[in-house]
Write a protein that binds this DNA or RNA. Sequence first.
DNA 1: GCCGTTTTCGGCCCGACTGTTTTCAGTCG
Length: 570
Amino acid sequence: MKNVEIVKIFEEIADFLEILNENPFRIRAYRKAAKTVEALAEPVDTLTPEELIKLPGIGKDLAGKINEYIETGRISLHEELKNKIPEGLLNVMKIPGVGPKTAAFLYEKLNLKNIDELEKALFEGRLKGLPGFGPKTEENLRKGIMMFKKGRERIPLSKALPIAREIAHVLKEKSGVKKIEIAGSIRRWKETVKDIDIICATDKPEMVTLAFVKIPGIKEVIAKGPTKVSVIHKSDIQVDLRVVEEKSYGSALAYFTGSKEHNIRVRDLARQKGLKINEYGVFKESDETFIAGQKEEDVYCAVGLPWIPPELREDRGEIEAALKNKLPEIIQLSDIKGDLHIHSNYSDGAHSIEEIVISSIKRGYSYIAITDHSKGLGVARGLTEERILAQKEEIEKLARRYPEILILHGIEVNIQPDGSLDLPDEVLQELDIVIASVHSAFKQSENEMTERVIKAIKNPFVHIIGHPTGRLLGQREPYSINIDEIIRNAKKYGKFLEINSYPLRMDLNDINARKAKDLEVKVVINTDAHATAQLDYIIYGISVARRAWLEKNDILNTMKTEELLELIKK
DNA sequence: GCCGTTTTCGGCCCGACTGTTTTCAGTCG
């Protein structure tokens, strides 16, 4: 898609301009435009020049550059910059601790054009004596290069969240800590995160920062000042702690929850009101009078906004909605009435149906669906028609024993490479609920895959398309599929799309789930649990839904039992 | 390079920490 390519080029232009020490606002304009194109739902080449110019941060010049790329496949400014500056410097800038100034300086002084040359120069001691390069800087460069080579890839939320919670929990008990909360992208429930941010209110900052660096599991202290400490946890995740006075707690929390784009918009509103926002509070611009800061609500209120849930803070329209008081009432855990994708020990699940039923009743669910794999998935002991009948009998028996919950007999049927299902319609017809999922031939072309799934959508006995894009965070890219086309067909044939809560899936993702909402396609938030404890994964699916602005009515399994039965009968 | 409820010019978010310097530039978030 051209969008991705344009984003990359704009980012590179910004990097090059930084090396050239250009006007910082011009540089920011390129970065902002890159963000805008990145967030765009439709391909840029479907937009007219007039529509392009209306996009935020894209004016006459940048619209022209986008058009130039669409027409010629290149942007002349980008080509000129590449001729002027070695591309390797862009990587040098990616070394932690190295920015445009350092990269440019090393290039000018020592003609270092890439990381390899920098490494060699370090080894040969050629940096010694350069102004500003002491022993510490050299050491940091060595470390930085190592970090870069290791690849600072983003961490799945499900890995970072438990670590963050553990650290916050330990720190909470330390004396001096009045309030503590996880901030940053974890608080926004972003599917992957770069580091862990923790905000703490205290009167005794030095006590808290000292306790923090002593927490078991902290292996290295990167930076430690009176109010801010950065450490590396043994899991190699960076943890940043920020301590403030209680009266600044809300503004610090807002500030470090981000996103950056969201904060910039909020500050912009503040500026228009003659106010200034930083991590210490909201102040009058004229005389620095403290206006607000203790609670997040107060900070938003000061600029004329209602409190905005962290999951929405991405500058994807939430500011505009908040200004009109039209923020969505995004769903909560308590809205979920049941889980419609659970595996039992009939296939590859760990627990019996009865154990699942008991665990679900404990969670207060009104209904669940047992959806084991169908026979095609040999590795998962997929069910044959005979086993399905046996399962049906057991479910009927359990239904009599546990009348407080509705147990639906379902299946997760395989969508085969040709789009057919690996159980005949006569069998599917007998089941209460049918999820159809792709589990094989991931490498098909976008056309083949899209047609394949659409064929499954058209099957009258299929209710839900499971994990529609097949991605596994950090392990497997989504398969090539035209998700817009899938959503349109789900709409046309009255089918539901799954938000699979399995932590590495979170599939649909937030962007696609919001597209589904826009086209009025209901989604269903399932866990795909293979053990009763995994029913807790529902929080990850809910976070996707919240980030996608989904409300109760957009979701199948928030419905009351009767409504659900009515909907899946159709 | 973008943008406009004091503006088509003159603004553009804001502060902490490090390493080296001797008052601050560079980097980061």
